[in-house]
Design a protein around this nucleic acid. Structure first.
Lengths: 205, 205
DNA sequence: AAGATAACTGGACCTATGGTTCAGTTAATA
DNA sequence: TATTAACTGAACCATAGGTCCAGTTATCTT
């Protein structure tokens, strides 16, 4: 029921949009080069050329900032999964869709260095109480639903919900993440494939 | 090359040993009842009836304290795995040993509430640089070696090392951990069994 | 175009917490 | 009982997330 695009525009002033981008890009750059615990909000603000208050005004908290960064990255994959060509998109058998999905996720994680670790770090060091845990993150929810659905399709006898959590959680493991940062995402994808194919092929016992 | 037990005793004065226990038990109790971020070192010290400096003198850092707590818990399982009766101990086929191992680990984690999360939290919030990451923890190394060996035994064609990291990492997932805290460790164990049996039954493709 | 309005900005300030220091205390040894 | 080395704990420090608010500025209204 909004009048037009100008009303939309009014939501964010031109200078605010500029600073928003500057902050996001600065955070991205710093996180690419340093471990999360060395990237304080203040440092991000300085690199973006704004005050610390601005960052908190726009993003609410450190966690909010990192979350925004993750959303940016995850949107593309989300679309490919929902409506792209098989095996990632609809049409292929569930086992192959899962294998493709995890390969894609691994590649995404590898391309984005410390982002996952940064999110973990941000959630854990957030002092404002209202911080949502990782599993409430829209992207996580969406991925989890996708994986759960595919598992259930191929293996109606297992606890798909739980196993989906387990498989997705792997990305947050430090030993896994460090290899990801080193670019070895194909190795992770291969192991995902072994696990998933084994699971989907198995029967009630 | 030590002379006798008394020399051993000299390493820790009677009052120190008492306080050491008091600190450990206080931390344990607090972690059972509150999430890790609400259990500051100072609060532990107060509950144990000692000063904060004492805690740091004995354990080096927050992470050191939690690590000690974890070691206490893990020792028993480690022994059962190395020399206990099958299927946990030697003698059973690798797939069954893995299933038994993960069931045991899940039960251990469930019994100890927030300990795993606390360790994660401690490592991440530690400000002293020298903190070892989780995968350098002796217990983790030992578990990882065990799992790697069993996987390799049954499936020489997969990346056992990597998959072992993935399977062990599951315990640190927040959605998994929260269910664990709620006592649902059998559900986790069942899913572990599904994954492991599928993996171990599968062949090269 | 000018005034009104609401949003944006940024730096001073607050607070929590992990960690350090060191002078005094006390258990073990000879 | 004297000596010594370890233990203790309270005051202190540094850092980083988060809050505040007075001044600024884009956008809307008339």
């Amino acid at each position: 029921m909004r009048k037009n695009d100008r009303m939309e525009e009014r939501r964010e002033r031109a200078d605010a949009a500029r600073n928003r981008q500057a902050i996001l890009r600065a955070a991205e750059e710093l996180l690419r080069r340093y471990p999360p615990e060395q990237v304080s909000v203040e440092r991000v603000a300085a690199a973006a050329g704004v005050g610390k208050g601005t960052v908190f005004h726009r993003f609410g908290s450190r966690a909010g900032l990192v979350r925004e960064l993750m959303n940016e990255r995850a949107r593309e994959l989300e679309r490919a999964v929902a409506e792209g060509p098989p095996p990632l998109g609809p049409g292929a058998p569930p086992a192959e869709r899962l294998v493709a999905f995890f390969a894609e996720v691994a590649a995404l994680a590898a391309r984005n260095g410390n982002l996952l670790a940064a999110h973990e770090h941000a959630v854990l060091t957030s002092r404002s109480a209202g911080e949502q845990p990782r599993e409430a993150h829209p992207t996580y929810v969406s991925w989890h639903r996708h994986v759960t659905g595919l598992i259930a399709e191929g293996r109606p006898d297992v606890d798909a919900d739980q196993i989906a959590h387990m498989l997705l959680g792997v990305l947050h493991m430090e030993p896994v993440a460090s290899r990801l940062r080193a670019g070895e995402h194909e190795r992770l994808a291969a192991s995902y494939a072994d696990l998933v194919r084994g699971l989907m092929a198995g029967s009630g016992s």
